[in-house]
């Protein structure tokens, strides 16, 4: 069986740094046979994980993309930041109806990640938040 493809990157603190992570997803995903449409969904989820890490992590953000050339192929993306952490269970599920009559219109990132990926696992404590997401080609 072919070996897993692995890319690790450290996101720079600059505008659109999240797109470095999507470029890695594209490269690894293509190498193991992901379709363009599935990759587009994974990239959207990865953008959200990176934005959260960059916004709330307050510093260095590490991203690891691993492609498993199985049948069907599988991608795993891990995003790590070293911010104060948060409790995922306390985040409210966003409601479009409520947002249209309210001030706050953000809060869709985690919801999108959960719908676009097969699995999303978040481990968070002060000093380290680790978001691990997986998606199989043709999943969801």
């Amino acid at each position: 069986m072919a070996e897993a493809q692995r890319v690790r990157i450290l996101l720079p603190l600059q505008p659109q740094a999240e797109l470095m992570a999507t470029a890695a997803v594209e490269r690894v995903g293509r190498s193991i046979g992901f379709s363009r449409d599935t990759l587009a969904e994974v990239k959207l989820a990865v953008v959200e994980a990176c934005l959260n890490a960059l916004e709330y992590g307050g510093g260095q953000v590490e991203v690891e993309v691993v492609g498993f050339p199985e049948k069907p192929p599988r991608l795993e993306v891990v995003v790590v930041d070293h911010g104060p952490g948060f409790e995922p269970a306390t985040l409210p599920t966003p409601s479009l109806q409520a947002q249209l009559s309210g001030e706050r219109k953000r809060g869709w990132g985690l919801e999108l990640m959960r719908h676009l990926m097969d699995e999303v696992d978040i481990r968070s404590a002060p000093g380290c938040t680790r978001v691990r997401m997986t998606r199989r080609e043709g999943g969801r």
Partner: peptide, 14 residues
């Protein structure tokens, strides 16, 4: 591609 901040601004337009 669109991100959730862009989406929140589309909701302002809506």
């Amino acid at each position: 591609i669109i991100n959730s901040i862009g989406i929140s601004l589309l909701l302002e337009v809506l």
